[in-house]
């Protein structure tokens, strides 16, 4: 039982990361119907910005005196950085192709993904980078189940970001504009919504969430690598589709499911086949519900 609970916690943490990355996929897909292969690279860039800024703080000595300020500041800056990066990528590589076939955009995204990954490798070096220890790795023991403070913080931050995103999409003007653009581009343009701006914002928000995930992954697992975006990118893409692509609640659910399946497959069946089980679950689920768990574009929740 303890074993099971512990694995649940492991799965939820991993699933939370996938959910954060999947949100960016799903939002971008909702607005311009593009599978943004470069999204995993935004996640990696976020992780790197986090390590750069936190190491800088640590060398200045701020990290020990104001850990929360440093962490919060780094996270905001990294999110801003990735938002800028995503907007630049969108303007250069996707905007000119908006009228072309969707597959042309997909190819452009793949090119950008290779470019950014190698850009990270060249500027940051081939060796992995290590996060400075922000908080001591204290562990909370509940019986035989142990939760680290890092895990609690990660879960809390993930939940907070998800709630914040929901509020942004459903309560604010820009959120409404995003939903309108996702539903009908022509109609929303007619009522005076600037599609270019909305698309830029969508990329920025999605990349910001990916950056937050990148920092948390970096802190939780301890290191970042230039190619760390690729595998989680694919998993998050699977999560987004599993939940019903374009559907925000679906993406969160999908992320959690993929995370849990992966952990339980590794725990109870076999580590080497865990990805096989994740994909089998995905395929089985899609066979019975071809538009994902929550369904695609069911109401106005699509972004």
């Amino acid at each position: 039982m303890d074993f099971f609970l512990q694995q649940c916690i492991n799965g939820l943490t991993l699933g939370g990361f996938y959910a954060l990355i999947a949100l960016g996929y799903t939002m971008v897909f909702g607005v311009i119907q593009l599978i943004n292969f470069a999204h995993g690279e935004f996640f990696a860039a976020g992780g790197y910005m986090g390590v750069i800024l936190l190491s800088f703080c640590a060398s200045m000595g701020f990290l020990e005196t104001h850990p929360l300020l440093c962490l919060g500041g780094s996270m905001l800056l990294a999110m801003g950085y990735c938002a800028m990066l995503a907007m630049a990528v969108e303007k250069i590589a996707y905007m000119p192709l908006r009228r072309a076939s969707r597959l042309s955009m997909l190819l452009s995204a793949l090119g950008m993904s290779i470019f950014l990954q190698n850009g990270l490798m060249l500027t940051q070096g081939v060796y992995s980078k290590s996060y400075p220890t922000v908080f001591t790795n204290k562990v909370l023991h509940l019986g035989n189940v142990s939760i680290s403070y890092m895990q609690i913080m990660t879960l809390a931050l993930t939940a907070g970001l998800l709630v914040g995103l929901n509020a942004l999409v459903f309560r604010t003007r820009i959120g409404t504009a995003m939903r309108a653009t996702a539903q009908d581009k022509v109609m929303s343009a007619l009522v005076g919504i600037n599609a270019n701006r909305v698309i830029s914002m969508t990329f920025a928000i999605g990349a910001g969430l990916a950056a937050a995930a990148g920092i948390m992954v970096g802190m939780y697992y301890g290191t970042v690598r230039y190619d760390m975006g690729f595998v989680p990118g694919i998993k998050a893409f699977a999560a987004a589709v599993l939940g019903g692509i374009g559907n925000i609640t679906g993406a969160m659910l999908g992320g959690l499911i993929i995370g849990l399946v992966e952990i339980f497959a590794a725990a109870y069946i076999s580590g080497e086949y865990k990805d096989v089980f994740a994909f089998i679950i995905l395929i089985a689920m899609l066979y019975f519900r071809p538009t994902g768990i929550m369904g695609e574009n069911v109401d106005d929740t699509r972004v």
Binding site: L107, S108, G111, M112, I114, F115, Q117, G119
Partner: peptide, 11 residues
């Protein structure tokens, strides 16, 4: 890096 850039530019 050059290859990725070239791919996007060609497209």
């Amino acid at each position: 890096l050059a290859f990725g850039g070239a791919m996007t530019i060609m497209m």
